[in-house]
């Protein structure tokens, strides 16, 4: 195991965040805080209790999950796309590193960043809406699992993308809509039966559901199902990545 290389990649990626702190930390925190102000404080006071808690508290897990997903994907996809775009990927390809080590470095850094951001956002949310976390260990577990899985997913997008447009297409056209429709702002039990069924095909429903359960011990769907499906998605991402390195897809000619 070339731990020096994992460390080098990890440190390189983390310093990229430090260099762009406004864009990578401050701006997502502010935009999420705006959601809390508008939906949680301003509008939430006129809405009834949802899922057993105040509306403001109800949307906290969904909003945190939304930034975890978008940040994991964008961190990881940009992390591997930039070296491809600038041509500096030659160095990683010619170095004595295994695919596993490359993934550890890039995905590990992307997931760490998203996790740090998630915790900052949770702290910010606490300033606007009161909420409690009934299962903190599970909350952290879901946080880690989600950031890791979606960083893997972002890594795949970064390798697949051969333009900046493609890089943003998956997050903006698929992930964000699915998050909005995945019960970030409402309980899916409030939907008419047909829409509820359709919603169950949205994988992000399960992530938000599990995460929300760790906060309030209340869930629309069984938590075990949430956990299992997240793990399945992670396994799929790992499978795709091992295929990428086996075939050299978009990395080697």
């Amino acid at each position: 195991m070339n731990t020096q290389a994992v460390r080098a990649i990890y440190r390189f990626e983390m310093s990229r965040t430090a260099r762009t702190i406004l864009q990578s930390i401050v701006s997502p925190v502010i935009s999420t805080a705006l959601y809390f102000v508008v939906f949680g404080t301003a509008m939430g006071s006129h809405m009834g209790r949802t899922g057993g808690v105040s509306y403001g508290a109800f949307i906290v897990p969904g909003l945190v999950m939304m930034s975890l997903l978008t940040q994991s994907i964008s961190n990881a996809s940009l992390g591997i796309y930039m070296p491809k775009f600038m041509g500096t990927i030659y160095e990683v390809l010619s170095a004595p590193v295994s695919p596993f080590e490359i993934v550890c470095g890039y995905v590990g850094a992307a997931a760490s960043k998203a996790m740090i951001l998630g915790i900052i956002i949770l702290g910010t949310a606490r300033l606007f809406v009161p909420f409690e976390i009934l299962h903190p260990v599970w909350m952290i577990a879901f946080l880690m699992l989600t950031t890791l899985t979606f960083s893997l997913f972002g890594f795949i997008i970064g390798i697949w993308a051969d333009s900046f447009e493609k890089l943003s297409i998956v997050p903006s056209l698929i992930v964000t809509p699915l998050t909005f429709l995945g019960g970030s702002f409402y309980s899916i039990n409030l939907l008419p039966p047909l829409w509820r069924k359709i919603t169950l095909f949205n994988p992000i429903v399960y992530l938000i559901n599990g995460f929300r359960w760790s906060f309030y011990d209340a869930a629309d769907i069984a938590v075990g199902t949430s956990l299992a499906l997240t793990l399945v998605f992670m396994a799929i991402c790992l499978g795709v990545i091992s295929w990428i390195f086996k075939t050299g897809y978009r990395l080697k000619r």
Binding site: Q4, A5, A8, I9, S15, R19, G87, Y90, V92
Partner: peptide, 20 residues
């Protein structure tokens, strides 16, 4: 192809680490 925003010292140190 040598990156852009890192410092000279950091990029050279990165390379050394990458090679274990």
């Amino acid at each position: 192809t040598v990156g852009a925003f890192e410092t000279v010292w950091n990029t050279v140190t990165f390379s050394r680490g990458l090679f274990g």
